[in-house]
């Protein structure tokens, strides 16, 4: 299982980078989102995956009685998911604004600083 998940992560990374290398602004954002998902899954996988053992202490006891999934990567990923939402929306708006100002969505036409354009 881990093998396929690792391959999936590889595919996500590859497609994320590939989309970032296109010239379109929208593809850039899609690439960033794909990369974000890839990173989350990578952290998740490296924290070791287990089934049916959520890191929640059973109601009637004070400590874990049986095996549990590592809660630390989960806490990391949870914040990462929310932060990436902020990042994505900012990127989307930035692209919108840039598109409006430069009237181009070709990244290659955005390689000069404002002063020169």
């Amino acid at each position: 299982m881990e093998l396929i998940l690792a391959l999936l992560i590889g595919v996500l990374y590859a497609s994320g980078i590939y989309m970032m290398l296109r010239r379109s602004l929208v593809k850039l954002i899609v690439g960033i989102i794909l990369l974000g998902n890839a990173v989350n899954l990578l952290i998740f996988l490296l924290g070791r995956i287990t089934k049916g053992e959520p890191p929640i202490i059973p109601g009637d006891s004070d400590v874990f009685l049986q095996a549990y999934t590592d809660p630390l990567p989960q806490a990391l990923i949870l914040t990462a998911i929310v932060i990436s939402f902020g990042l994505q929306s900012f990127a989307i708006v930035l692209v919108k604004r840039a598109h409006k100002m430069v009237k181009a969505d070709d990244l290659d036409e955005m390689n000069t600083t404002d002063a020169e354009s």
Binding site: A6, G10, Y13, G16, L46, R48, D70
Partner: peptide
């Protein structure tokens, strides 16, 4: 671009598998 990003993805997948072989510090 496909080759570049593909090799990057492959590398990451390999690293992930390699790390899974190591003992984890919990």
């Amino acid at each position: 671009d496909g080759v570049i990003s593909g090799s990057f993805g492959l590398l990451l997948a390999l690293i992930a598998l390699e790390v899974l072989q190591e003992p984890v510090n919990k």
